[in-house]
Nucleic acid binder design. Structure first.
Length: 164
DNA sequence: CGACTTTGACCAGCGC
DNA sequence: GCGCTGGTCAAAGTCG
């Protein structure tokens, strides 16, 4: 279980990455990794309806639906958010000493992508950008649902509920 | 043996 | 038109 905190998340209508934008929109900071994963998975699906996005500035290619970026404190770039991701690329970015990694959801028929890169200013933070909407449940959510039915008390002890 | 990662090449968009 | 840059592809390698 990676040790990370969900620090900020923002919805992107354009490909604008501005520090003021994401530092001014702060949300809850769940303490447990699994809780954080559940939290932002929910945030994605809750916000899909009112977001229209452009894939690139000046290019209206929106078949993926929308884009959302998270900035979270994490030791590792690889964040287990409950989905299975397949890495398909890595690129050194200008103005950043850190390479950017490209992942696709490896579930069949689901072409959600995510980009992961370290924060330029604070290397203890990782910026994760999701593109698209999953057309399936996260495997861990299915597992969670099953476990909740079988042993709700056991899970209540391990996963703290998201703060309201 | 299948699924996944790595990594260089390729391609398209954008600015000059 | 050309070069730069970001994003994707695909072959080869690795791992369980």
């Amino acid at each position: 279980m990676p040790d990370f905190q969900l620090s900020d998340y923002l919805m992107l209508e354009d490909a604008i990455f501005d520090e003021d934008t994401y530092s001014s929109q702060s949300t809850a900071s769940p303490e447990k990794g699994m809780a954080a994963a559940t939290e932002f998975s929910g945030a994605i699906s809750k916000n899909t309806s009112n977001i229209k996005s452009k894939n690139r500035v000046g290019k209206n290619k929106s078949e993926l639906g929308f884009r959302v970026a998270f900035r979270m404190k994490s030791e590792t770039e690889v964040i287990d958010d409950g989905y299975k991701w397949r890495k398909y690329g890595k690129k050194s970015i200008k103005n950043s000493p850190n390479p950017r990694n490209y992942y696709k959801c490896s579930s069949g028929g689901c072409n959600v992508k995510k980009r992961i890169e370290r924060d330029i200013n604070d290397k203890s933070y990782v910026i994760t950008t999701y593109e698209g909407v999953h057309n399936h449940e996260t495997p861990s959510m299915l597992y969670y649902n099953q476990m909740s039915l079988m042993a709700p008390n056991a899970w209540a002890l391990q996963a703290s509920p998201p703060p309201t």
